[in-house]
Design a protein around this nucleic acid. Sequence first.
DNA 1: CTTGACACCGAACAGGTGTTCATATTATAA
DNA 2: TTATAATATGAACACCTGTTCGGTGTCAAG
Lengths: 217, 217
Amino acid sequence: MPRKKKKTLTKRQKAILDFIRSFLTENGFPPTVREIGEAVSISSTSVVSYNLNRLVERGHLLREKELSRGLRLTSDIPSLSSRVGFTRIPMAGPIVAGEPVEIGESVFDEEDAIELSNDLLAHHDDLFALKVRGDSMIDAMVSDGDIVVMRPQKEARDGEMIAAWLTDRDETTLKYFYHEGGRIRLQPANPTMDPIFVDPSVVQVQGKVLLVVRQIN
Amino acid sequence: MPRKKKKTLTKRQKAILDFIRSFLTENGFPPTVREIGEAVSISSTSVVSYNLNRLVERGHLLREKELSRGLRLTSDIPSLSSRVGFTRIPMAGPIVAGEPVEIGESVFDEEDAIELSNDLLAHHDDLFALKVRGDSMIDAMVSDGDIVVMRPQKEARDGEMIAAWLTDRDETTLKYFYHEGGRIRLQPANPTMDPIFVDPSVVQVQGKVLLVVRQIN
DNA sequence: CTTGACACCGAACAGGTGTTCATATTATAA
DNA sequence: TTATAATATGAACACCTGTTCGGTGTCAAG
């Protein structure tokens, strides 16, 4: 039998590693020291602990000291191993033509959420998504059923696409925002349509539009 | 304030759920009752336990009784509840106005790819994505820079949104497809625009559009 | 008002859980 | 061989952890 090199895992350590892996996929959380011991036929918890520390040294897992089930396989760490990462975005109530977008408190019920890979959308904390109802925003090339991902924002800078509540018309609209003299120009995204000019007092900015997703079927 | 319906989650329960989720992705294992309590400002462990049981009842969690960190989010269970996996979709070359969409072999380069959660798009194998160049498809409410996810398809059924190469005009367009008498009606998605009628011989269907994503900034 | 369901609190308990220690056994190198 | 490090053992310990229990307050139905 060939001699063991420094980097080789013992039979036991391999068994422990395998058990942790299968336990993790089976239960969703890591096993305790004693559970490991029982699984690989080790009577003493200290032996398990010893081997766990050995495995940590060799980089096969991470261990949170003095913490029950404080194990983690290095191969499962999101930050490493080229994982892209996803942002979870809660779905708020729909945008309804003729009503302002209500967010904040109303964002509670939702277990509804969508997830987007971070290469599509830079991660940010308080993003939320809205489902568009009605055809009131065709001028922004957004139609019924589309999902709009937004970041809450009370004010807008020139050139940003925002959701605005127009108090004089009682409607929510998606437009590009521009200061122009004393007024505000709201420019539709669809270049075949004309902009509208309104007084700043009637414009309530709801948030900035970051992404639009349309499911065809 | 309106009365809470049966299915509504309490503010606390929502906070607990969120904390478990973030803790899980952060550490790889679930939090303890006390860790949850501290995170959501609950002084008594029994209250946390109470709310956890409530969340279990409503199907948001699984719980292993009398087991430390014996929690699991139902949404993380692979076998159950329509696992929210992700589909990797390669980015083919851009759609250029005036050229047919070339796919097939060219889709190999895929360093570029996007990933979408399966709740946005049912998983399918040979999907591909295209980045739209030019403003030739505004009639489909698709503009420059948009990403179009498609499934390859040589023929179309009535009502499907497809990418079509029009041989007589030398252009690619996104339209709803309808047989109409001996001709084909290509209906823009934007209802303010008129359809065009063409002979079947000049229409080459490239694929069916499943999803459109627009990144604003 | 009374009742019961619901949400919450604080304290205490029993068992779970990682660690430590003294010691024994085995492997590797001199 | 002998020495040194690596590995294994079992018991004891201190803290962690989920549960239980008596009690408080709120709200809607009877």
